[in-house]
């Protein structure tokens, strides 16, 4: 159970966050840090050992994901 005074979430709470699916489920904090594969026990010992914050974990997950150099953001600026 997350206390609002905590600055970090547990692995279980991350899982809840991702799945909540309530417009911005609980949880962005968790969603930032989690993905399906990380639910496997021990899948991310590094994160736990280092005590990363949820934000850092979320950033790491995104940065570890390979993005081809030519990939444009999902929104692009268009001249009118």
């Amino acid at each position: 159970m997350t206390s609002n005074s905590k600055s970090k979430l547990t692995r279980r709470q991350f899982a809840g966050a991702v799945a909540a699916g309530l417009a911005a489920p609980g949880l962005f904090s968790g969603a930032l840090a989690q993905e399906k594969k990380e639910e496997k026990p021990g899948a991310s010992p590094h994160a736990q050992q280092q005590g990363e914050s949820f934000l850092e974990r979320g950033r790491r997950r995104l940065r570890e994901f390979p993005v081809p150099a030519e990939t444009e953001p999902a929104f692009i600026f268009r001249v009118k």
Binding site: G16, V18, A20, G26, L27
Partner: peptide
């Protein structure tokens, strides 16, 4: 749409929403 039915009103949602395929996101 969800893997469970309605939870108790006061129940912490982190206990309820435990994961899934990611189809909603």
């Amino acid at each position: 749409s969800l893997l469970f039915t309605a939870n108790r009103m006061e129940q912490d949602l982190n206990e309820v929403f435990r994961g899934g395929s990611g189809i909603g996101a």
